[in-house]
């Protein structure tokens, strides 16, 4: 069964473009959410989330990422033009794709997230910054 991806993005055309990339990569899009309530409502049905930082209800991206990771065990990748805005919330995520993104960055990051043990050290993906973390069964803890 292919991995299900939640897209948290409030710009519909950007979200649709990501949706196409996700499908081209061979994954399913479980939902597109434009704010925190919508994102959490769809959380049960997905494995990976691509999360923008500034959404319809404000800069809620970082907290959504934390909640998706800690409460639902979802692998989170932020997609943003302002990586510095992630702050403490990087603890819960695999990494960040910087906007503007290339479709290859999204594809490669998704494949990384879908792996049993994502090998972040080995990740050499243009436009993707991995957060170096030691894995644990429930969540991810920052090393830095």
């Amino acid at each position: 069964m292919s991995k299900r991806v939640l897209i948290v993005e409030d710009e519909i055309f950007v979200a649709l473009e990501i949706e196409q990339i996700v499908e081209e990569t061979g994954f399913d899009v479980s939902a597109i959410a434009a704010d925190r309530p919508a994102a959490l409502a769809c959380a049960e049905s997905c494995d990976i989330a691509l999360v923008d930082l500034n959404l319809r209800d404000g800069p809620t991206g970082p907290i959504i990422g934390m909640e998706l990771a800690s409460r639902y065990g979802i692998r989170v990748i932020y997609v943003t033009a302002n990586p510095s805005q992630i702050g403490e919330a990087s603890v819960a995520a695999l990494g960040v794709i910087t906007k503007p993104f290339r479709s290859q960055s999204i594809s490669a990051a998704l494949q990384l997230a879908a792996a049993e043990e994502p090998e972040l050290h080995a990740a050499e993906i243009a436009g993707f910054i991995p957060f170096l973390q030691s894995g644990s069964s429930s969540g991810l803890v920052s090393r830095g």
Partner: peptide
Amino acid sequence: SHRIKNIFSVIAGLIGLSAR
């Protein structure tokens, strides 16, 4: 400014969608 920034993102998204 936020809207202008968004417009750039939307244009980029539209180009990506069209190209597909």
